[in-house]
Design a protein around this nucleic acid. Structure first.
Lengths: 247, 247
DNA sequence: CGTAAGGTTGAATTCGATCAAACCAGGTGG
DNA sequence: CCACCTGGTTTGATCGAATTCAACCTTACG
C-alpha cells in the first residue's frame, strides 16, 4: 500500500479498531502529496477549504492571531494526524496551520472523505473520534496554560509530544526531532521566548531534558512526567500501557 | 413537541440546516429529564457513560483538576448544548461536568443517538458539527488565556456567553442571569478570584458591565467586544449578522 | 444571633514580561 | 578566506501583572 495511507491507517489504529473493509476503503483514497519547507502556511485563518491534509512527515502547528498581533499555537500535529479534519463540516477556518519544520503533507479531498464515510459507519466513527481527541487535547492545554506554571507547562508539552510520536513509532530511543524555536514554544505555552529560555535552562539543569540541535531527549521519563503533571489518559490512545513511556 | 427537544432542535438550527425527516427523528428521541441544584456533579472525570445530556435550563461548566488540586473550567454550556457529546465515541471521560446554577437537564441514551444517526447522515453531521464547534471554542479560549491579559480575557468570556445565549433566544434585552462566583470566573480564565475581583471593578468603572445579584448587563456591546478582542466567527453560528450584538 | 459563603481591600511577594544588548553559528557574497 | 548578515539564543536589569495571605465586610440563612 502507498506509505502515506499506511501511516494514516496506523494512526487510526491507535484510536479505534478498523475492519478489513474499512482498510480497503481507506487504501483507495486518492491522495496528493506535497513537500513544504519550514514556516510554510498550509491553511490560513478565514479560508474555505475543499480538502483535508494528513501530516506524513515533519511537524505542523495550528495558530491563531489576536487583535494585538500575538500568536497562540493551540496544538501541534505529528505524522499520521489530520489537523484540519474540521474543515469537512465547518466551512470557514477559524485557525491556520503551518509547518514548524520541513514537512511532507498528503491532501485528500472532502468529496473523497465524504464518499468513504458514506460507505462505512466505522470510518465516520474513527474520524469523528480523532476530532474528539483533538478537543480533549485542547481541554488539557487549557488546564495546562490556565493552571500550571511555566516549568510544568513546558514539561507537559514535551511529554505529550513524546507520547504522541511514540504512538506512531517515531521515538525509537528516548529522543526525537523537535526543531522548534523558543519563540514557537512560547507561543504554545503562552509565555515570552525569554522566559522559555530560562525554563529550558531549569529543565536542563535538573537533568530532565536534553534539547539541542533541534532534537529533544528525555533521559528520565517518569521525572519529567512528574514535573509536567502529565497523565496521558486525555490522549485516548488504545492500549495506553504499551504505548506510553518507559517504565 | 416536547419543549426539551424543541430546544435541542433550536440549537441544532443555529449550527446546521435540518430536513423535515431529521426533525421527526429528533422529536422521537427518548429523553429523561431531571433537575439539579447548584454545584451538582452531572458527570465526573474518569467515568464511563452510556448516555449524553442536554442542558435545558441553567448553566453547566466542564472542569478538570490538576495534580496540585487547581481547577480549570475549559468552557461553559448554555441551554440547548450537549456538553458530553464526546462520550458517544470516547468511553472514558477526560473531563467532568457540574451545574453552576440550578439547572434542568435532559438525558438521552447513546443507543438512541446512535440509532438516530444511523437513520440520517444529516444528523451525524449536525452532532459532529456541534463537537467541532466545541473544539473551536477551546482553541479560542486557549488564545484568550494564553495571549490576552486578565481584563480582555474576562471581557471575552462575557461576550461569548452573551452571543451564545442570544443565539438560543435567552437574552431579551442586554442582560442575562449569570450567578457565577468570582472563584468560578477565575477558574475559567486562569486567574485567582482576588484578581477577578479587581478586573471586575475595572470593567465596572469603565461602564462596560453591570454585574450584580447574579445577573450580567452589557450596556455597550461594541466597547466590551473591543476590550475583549471578541470576534464571534469562531462560534460558527449561522447568520452571524442577525444573531450577534446590537448594532 | 451566629455562621457560612462570597466579596472587597491592602501589603508583600513572585512570576513572568519587557527592553536591550551581547553572543553565536551557519550561510552568503565579495 | 574573511566580513557581514541573519535568525536564534542567552543574559542582565527593570517593570508590571497577578498571586498570596490576611483581614474585614456584607448578605443570606438557619
Amino acid at each position: 500500500m502507498r506509505p502515506a495511507l499506511a501511516l494514516l491507517m496506523r494512526r487510526l489504529d491507535t484510536v479505534t479498531v478498523l475492519e478489513r473493509q474499512d482498510r480497503e476503503i481507506l487504501a483507495a483514497l486518492p491522495i496528493e502529496i506535497a513537500a513544504f519547507e519550514d514556516n510554510h502556511d498550509i491553511v490560513r485563518e478565514g479560508e474555505h477549504r475543499d480538502r483535508c491534509f494528513v501530516v506524513l512527515k515533519g511537524l505542523i502547528g495550528s495558530y491563531k492571531l489576536t487583535g494585538e498581533g500575538a500568536r497562540q499555537i493551540p496544538s501541534f500535529y505529528v505524522p499520521g494526524d489530520m489537523p484540519d479534519m474540521q474543515s469537512i463540516h465547518l466551512s470557514r477556518m477559524d485557525v491556520g496551520f503551518r509547518t514548524l519544520m520541513p514537512s511532507r503533507i498528503g491532501f485528500v479531498s472532502h468529496a473523497a472523505i465524504r464518499l468513504a464515510c458514506a460507505q462505512s459507519f466505522t470510518l465516520i466513527e474513527a474520524f469523528w473520534r480523532m476530532t474528539l481527541i483533538d478537543a480533549s487535547i485542547f481541554r488539557e492545554w487549557l488546564t495546562n496554560i490556565g493552571q500550571r506554571n511555566a516549568l510544568a507547562r513546558l514539561a507537559h508539552v514535551f511529554c505529550e509530544l513524546f507520547v504522541r510520536l511514540k504512538a506512531v513509532g517515531l521515538v525509537p530511543d528516548h529522543s526525537f526531532d523537535l526543531p522548534l524555536t523558543q519563540q514557537e514554544l512560547g507561543d504554545a505555552i503562552g509565555t515570552s521566548s525569554v522566559h522559555v529560555n530560562r525554563v529550558l535552562q531549569e529543565l536542563r539543569k535538573e537533568g530532565l531534558i536534553v534539547f539541542r540541535e533541534g532534537r529533544l531527549t528525555i533521559p528520565d521519563w517518569s521525572r519529567l512526567a512528574e514535573v509536567g503533571d502529565f497523565d496521558p489518559a486525555y490522549l485516548h490512545l488504545r492500549e495506553t500501557g504499551r504505548t506510553v513511556g518507559t517504565r
